[in-house]
């Protein structure tokens, strides 16, 4: 084969192969590229928990739905999935509440106002808000599980007239561990929302309830047969809270919870966050209880 024939064949192979194989859209884009955001506000919530407000350095704000998460990248340290905690109607401030428990989150804790973070997202399924129009809303949070629920509370209160009774039941470790204390106090002061906080342990200065959040569920204050329930907290707490809601009469298909699993890519390609047949990053993190109840009861899935 002479050089000219070879070159002609090479061109033909490239053209025909490329045309036959893949839509051009598949070979373009960069799913790993983080957008730079500047820390505009940094505050400590609890001894190991902090909240950053982020503003974009390279373009429009990141719009999101309650319950979604972002991958936050700290230069050189790595990337972690963190739920969005801000008001979905005010996306110009991207709010993330993080507990410093690992290398990346500890590096993030050391950042201050003016520093930059990389952001990929938003990812994942949201809490269904409109599905609760016309129904009572019960939000059950355990510990730092209040953080992914706060955008939902914002969204519900912004459309308060669309819902029946709105109840927040929150279990914390101690009175000192109540996340977003100012916001919780403000919600408690509203006439159109009932807020009950219980703690696992307390000194005598705490005059509120002591015990599991499941006891708050049992006490009621909502029309269980006409309720949409949203639960977030440690997995064991969610299992028992879901059962308490079911016992109370809430329908399993009106009960939603948010799962946590190891995530590396957030786009369903790395395999880490698999939970049964679901990728928590894209099929979750918010799941309808009746679809996952059997799996939730199984160890090491």
């Amino acid at each position: 084969m002479d050089a000219a024939a070879a070159a002609a064949l090479a061109d033909r192979l490239t053209e025909t192969a490329a045309a036959a194989r893949l839509p051009a859209s598949l070979t373009e884009g960069d799913p790993w590229r983080p957008r730079p955001f500047r820390i505009d506000r940094w505050r400590r919530d609890l001894s190991d928990t902090f909240t950053v407000d982020l503003v974009p350095l390279d373009g429009p704000p990141l719009t999101f739905a309650p319950g979604q998460f972002n991958m936050l990248y700290v230069h050189g340290a790595g990337e972690v999935p963190i739920s969005i905690s801000g008001d979905p109607d005010q996306p110009e401030r991207l709010v993330h509440t993080t507990r410093a428990v690992g290398q990346v989150t500890n590096a993030m804790k050391a950042l201050r106002v003016g520093d930059t973070l990389g952001v990929r997202g938003p990812f994942g399924t949201p809490w269904p808000v409109e599905a609760a129009f016309g129904h009572d809303v019960v939000i059950v949070a355990g510990g730092i599980g209040l953080a992914p629920l706060r955008p939902l509370i914002h969204a519900v209160l912004a459309r308060r007239e669309r819902f029946g009774t709105v109840v927040l039941l929150y279990g914390a470790r101690t009175p000192e561990d109540i996340l977003y204390r100012a916001a919780v106090t403000a919600w408690r002061g509203r006439f159109d929302m009932s807020v009950h906080v219980t703690v696992d342990r307390a000194t005598g200065r705490w005059s509120g309830p002591i015990g599991m959040v499941t006891k708050l569920i049992a006490r009621g204050g909502f029309d269980a047969r006409d309720t949409m329930a949203y639960v977030c907290g440690p997995e064991v707490m969610m299992r028992h809270a879901a059962q308490a809601l079911i016992d109370k009469g809430v329908a399993a298909e009106r009960l939603f919870l948010s799962m946590e699993r190891n995530m590396k890519c957030a786009i369903g390609l790395c395999g880490h966050c698999q939970w049964g047949a679901d990728f928590v990053c894209k099929d979750g993190p918010v799941f309808r209880y009746d679809r996952v109840a059997a799996r939730l009861a199984q160890a090491e899935v």
Partner: peptide
């Protein structure tokens, strides 16, 4: 049941 769950200290770091 509540005592057992409390014993787990679920919200601990």
């Amino acid at each position: 049941r509540a005592a057992r769950l409390q014993m787990l200290d679920l919200y601990a770091p």
